[in-house]
Design a protein around this nucleic acid. Sequence first.
DNA 1: CTATGTTGCCAACAGATGTTGACCAACAAC
DNA 2: GTTGTTGGTCAACATCTGTTGGCAACATAG
Lengths: 189, 189
Amino acid sequence: MTAENRPRRSYATRAAILAAARERFAVDGYERATIRAIARDAAIDPSMVMRYYGSKEKLFAAASELELRLPAADGIPPGEIGTTLVGHFLDHWEADGTLAAMLRVGVTNPAGAERLREVMAQQLGPYVAALCPDPAEAPRRAALVATQMLGVALCRYVLRLPPVADLTRAEIVAWLAPTVERYATAAHP
Amino acid sequence: MTAENRPRRSYATRAAILAAARERFAVDGYERATIRAIARDAAIDPSMVMRYYGSKEKLFAAASELELRLPAADGIPPGEIGTTLVGHFLDHWEADGTLAAMLRVGVTNPAGAERLREVMAQQLGPYVAALCPDPAEAPRRAALVATQMLGVALCRYVLRLPPVADLTRAEIVAWLAPTVERYATAAHP
DNA sequence: CTATGTTGCCAACAGATGTTGACCAACAAC
DNA sequence: GTTGTTGGTCAACATCTGTTGGCAACATAG
């Protein structure tokens, strides 16, 4: 029997599959991202994908593990909450294709939508809860923030609506920060 | 030769196909909306779809003709611009599956994305141009409005993020109207 | 050395998909 | 009645999909 903690040769392959899967899911969505294409990108045989991940759905589940790693909520001075949050989202989006993959897949695949709901509820929810006046309405405020942040992401990275895609990072932050901060903290309209 | 203006019997079928296509595209997106399923919904043979629309892509093009029918831009008093615009979008979205179809398809299909870009540029663009201070920056302002409106639509009708889906129409209007009005008319942040 | 588990490729399966062409029924025109 | 057009069905096609099982190469254990 092999020692348990020796690094297996297959780890590299597993990682290559996961990386290729994330990219394909991000670019093509769930249906168009074929196992064969993912395998080709990872330079292995399609059957290996099945062996390591069981099925296409399980592969997607593995590829859509996501940590937003939002900055600490406390200690941000009012007036910089929006700036911080918008900036962080943009950074994360551009550094990691996982969010794009989840957005693309979430639109056409129930499991993908579920994943996105989880991320928003479990990671954005508590964050906003620490900021807003009445914790009871944190979910709704977080959801409003989500509409604006997912909206930019959709227009900028997925649909590539020219005016949105051409805006600089600074411009987006400047325009959206007041919106996001209002959703998170301001009194009811 | 047949008279040119007699209503053809096939008009009903064509319409049925189009209606079924819109619904399927809206619910399933481009790839999962199969011609066979659309034909089944329209209670005809799949080959009829091909005969009338040539190909799946052309069928989608026909199914995604869209008129936003935005209310007249002039005459809206400042302070009600956001309310009017947000309300109109919500109404349109709920009355007609076409927008949902275009959003779902736009995310996974290049032709769908192109369609959505067209609609935003040609219908929302001029509208915002009539409202904003400097016409030169109308496209960017319209695009900002689009990020917020498509963002709600995405969260509410496609992803069905619970807190967003549970908000009442009035609540959404109240929260989003200031955002949209600011994007369209306010001075640079 | 042999025995055993791991890593990988190959070929094939069953099912679904977009698309095509042959064929048939109804009907209008002559 | 014959003829040509229109609306529609049926069966098949080539291709692509996720998935499976078998088999070769290799590494490690004993």
